[in-house]
């Protein structure tokens, strides 16, 4: 069950490309705004930005159907926006306000939307992985056609509970896609320094879980790989592993000076592999899309993000009575 690395084969339509572009740009602009608000003191605590990794969730959300579930760790803003959660609710949670998805009680790392089947937002590295398999267990138990996208990073990939989960997911043929977002740094430690085998997709082999390594900066390649994985899972084939090679432009969190890598390394990825630039170029190569169309999209998304920021600042802090609500139901 060797992992494969495939070249993309499909030619996406204009509408598909426009969809990817809007989704990725929304995440990029949202995260930039979150960074600003953090700097201004509107957002507290930990705040982990997804800038650079937008193609991963965007490509995979393109293959999700109604009822599919998703779960991730704490670098989660992009996942929420990509699955259709409203920027206002996400941003207001970052500012700790009543209008946030968790009424201000979860913050950046702990947000959920039952309606959108987004199961968090988890602050403990790796803990979301067995939970994701449990979501898939429920779908199998209830005999639905749904699957669960369980995201984790290269850092979490060394946690023991990941392998306990691989074992059970394969043993019980659970419909779960394990999405390893390899952004090459577990906080400040590069994969080479933390992992005896940095090719994480190969780690499913011991459990007979098929896997692929994918260019996670190319949204079309991600979507194609996602289609193969989803087909496998929905068909009763059990779990599937996708390792997405990606890169985060910003620090691990807002307080990370990123001394562990050079500015040049970051600039090189930004300049040569930026997922949003890549799609913009493809769009402009189509005769039917021009610079003005792109500018219009950019403007609309800026407006959406600005209004989310306004909402997040204007929304009141939670009522003090909320301190004692939702401990039990």
């Amino acid at each position: 069950m060797a992992a494969q690395r495939r070249r993309r084969t499909q030619k996406p339509t204009k509408d598909e490309l426009l969809g990817y572009y809007k989704s990725m740009l929304l995440i990029r602009r949202f995260e930039e705004k979150a960074g600003q608000l953090y700097g201004m003191g509107h957002i507290g605590g930990f705040c982990h930005l997804y800038i650079g990794q937008e193609a991963v969730v965007t490509g995979l959300e393109a293959v999700a159907i109604k009822g599919d579930k998703r779960i991730t760790a704490y670098r989660d803003h992009g996942h929420m926006l990509a699955c259709g959660m409203h920027p206002n609710g996400v941003m207001a949670e970052l500012t700790g306000r009543q209008g946030g998805y968790s009424c201000g009680k979860g913050g950046s790392m702990h947000m959920f939307s039952k309606e959108r089947h987004f199961y968090g937002g988890h602050g403990i590295v790796g803990a979301q992985v067995p939970i994701g398999a449990g979501l898939a267990f429920a779908d199998k138990y209830l005999q639905t056609d749904n699957i669960t996208f369980t995201y984790f990073g290269d850092g979490a990939a060394n946690q023991g509970q990941i392998y306990e989960t691989f074992n059970m997911a394969s043993l019980w043929k659970l419909p779960v896609i394990f999405v390893i977002e390899n952004n090459q740094y577990a906080m400040g430690t590069s994969t080479e320094r933390a992992s005896s085998t940095p090719e994480f997709h190969t780690r499913g082999a011991a459990f007979e879980i098929p896997s692929e390594m994918v260019d996670g900066m190319d949204v079309v390649a991600v979507k194609e790989a996602g289609e193969r994985a989803a087909k496998h899972c929905r068909g009763g084939g059990g779990p599937y592993i996708l390792e997405l090679l990606t890169y985060r432009y910003r620090g691990h969190s807002m307080s990370d000076p990123a001394k562990y890598r050079s500015r040049e390394e970051v600039q090189k990825v930004r300049g040569e592999q930026d997922p949003i630039d890549m799609v913009r170029v493809r769009l402009l190569a189509l005769k039917s899309v021009n610079e003005d169309d792109i500018k219009k999209i950019d403007k609309d998304i800026r407006a959406l993000v600005n209004s989310a920021a306004d909402f997040a600042k204007a929304s009141p802090e939670p009522d003090v009575k909320e301190l004692y609500t939702d401990v039990y139901r």
Partner: peptide
Amino acid sequence: DTPITEHGFTGLGVGAAFAGL
């Protein structure tokens, strides 16, 4: 029947409960 992996199967149970079981 689960494997002897308390950490993993407990998390899996929690996920199943989140999903309504």
